[in-house]
């Protein structure tokens, strides 16, 4: 007997939650317990009184699974609101990465040239290394990292995705 795979989609969800102990464990735990995927997850409090945090989750699954992810998140007592930004369409998604590249001579010059094309900033430099800061969509960052792989990439740190709907309306 073999287990069959199904078509999946990538969705970005914005989740507002009470900022209190254990919330992240609850959310992450719900994903593992029900066998859903987390591709990336970012969290920070976004209110002046530190009472509410905003979590951006990127997940992949079949449309039915995505619908369940939203419903199951919504059931959690600490969750105020879940918005499927992908479903709504028209949103901005950004990620930041710090990329360390080691090398000398031609490689250094090529790294700087590519960084310029990708609007990455140098945030640290030694005679043998650079640390670049690059922001953009996840695909852009993937591409940048891929290119750097050929010219001395040694380390990457990524923040995961932050996302927000375009236009006047606030969630």
């Amino acid at each position: 007997m073999h287990i069959q795979q199904q078509e999946t989609e990538r969705h970005t969800l914005s989740v507002t939650v009470d900022n209190e102990a254990g919330v992240l464990a609850r959310i992450a735990g719900m994903f593992t317990a029900r066998g859903y995927n987390i591709d990336s997850l970012t969290v920070a409090d976004v209110t002046e009184d530190d009472s509410i945090s905003r979590i951006t989750i990127v997940t992949t699954g079949t449309p039915a699974v995505i619908e369940q992810v939203v419903a199951q998140l919504d059931r959690l007592i600490n969750v105020h609101r879940v918005i499927d930004l992908t479903e709504r369409g028209n949103f901005v998604e950004r990620e930041l990465a710090l990329v360390k590249v080691v090398g000398t001579g031609e490689h250094r010059i090529e790294a700087l040239r590519l960084a310029d094309v990708y609007r990455a900033r140098v945030v640290d430099a030694t005679t043998g290394s650079f640390v670049f800061e690059v922001t953009g969509s996840s695909e852009k960052i993937d591409k940048f990292i891929e290119l750097m792989g050929e010219i001395g990439l040694v380390e990457v740190a990524r923040t995961g995705v932050a996302a927000i709907a375009r236009g006047k309306e606030a969630v």
């Binding site: 039915a64 619908e67 369940q68 419903a71 059931r75």
Partner: peptide, 11 residues
Amino acid sequence: IDRGSINKIVR
């Protein structure tokens, strides 16, 4: 009463 029960198994 539970939104999570709807469309979970049967559409």
